[in-house]
Design a protein around this nucleic acid. Structure first.
Lengths: 122, 122
DNA sequence: GGGGCGCCTTCACGTCGCGGTAACGGACTG
DNA sequence: CAGTCCGTTACCGCGACGTGAAGGCGCCCC
């Protein structure tokens, strides 16, 4: 594979302590590798690439499964669940995948505790 | 759907500290996402697109529900109320939705005092 | 072959929030 | 006073979602 050559443009997504390298099928959480299955990694990438956006299940399914979402298919929900479990296992304080009822999911890393940013309204 | 093409013209409404992206079903207040239901978001979009205009309930209902308003239907009032609550919760000093008795509602952000927006890109 | 192990998918069940309606009360008008 | 308009809250059915588990398939190893 082409994973060896580093001088090319390699997509690296860094968000809230996560580091995702789609081309290498690698995800690091706080420096340590996340053990993910193919589908789990696909969903994580699709969400992370659309960070801070609300992504519908249709778009998510099409991006990962490369097929239209069939009515009644709850695969997306299940893999979001699996991702949440594995993410929380490594980073218990971080909220990553947010549900927007009726719309879809939104990937936005948020730390529940530390808030050292200046000028935090409310 | 225009959501798929990344670099095209995406409708973004910016008004008084609010940022609304209809195509992404996303509304940001002072940089952080507003948690809205489908109907609430629909009403917000319809109002924001008609900012500074007095919009009748008939027009509002038709725009969001895509059906004519039936006599006695007070759904619009209820969702305006829900929107007001959620908007005030995030931006206590801003008045957004104004009532015009006998005519309808008008969306015009008004701040009672200056708000320091802390743009915090992660 | 046969057993074990992941992974993907589907199913079932419980919970919760949304959406829509009704109802009450206040403000205002004539 | 009756009548209108609107703000606000309460209520309920139902769909959306979270969650655990089972079935099915492919793969590896003994």
């Amino acid at each position: 594979m082409e994973a060896a050559r580093a001088h090319e443009e390699i997509e690296v997504i860094r968000l809230g302590g996560l580091e995702i390298r789609p081309s290498e099928s690698l995800a690091l959480a706080a420096g340590r590798p996340l053990i993910l299955s193919v589908r789990e990694f696909g969903v994580l990438c699709a969400l992370a690439r659309r960070a801070d956006r609300i992504v519908s299940r249709e778009e998510l399914y099409r991006a990962v499964w490369n097929a239209p979402l069939r009515a009644g298919d709850r695969s997306v929900d299940v893999y979001v669940r699996k991702l949440r479990v594995k993410l929380e296992r490594v980073m218990p304080d971080g909220r990553f995948i947010h549900t927007h009822v009726g719309f879809g999911y939104r990937f936005s890393p948020e730390r529940s505790h530390v808030f050292h940013t200046s000028a935090t309204p409310r």
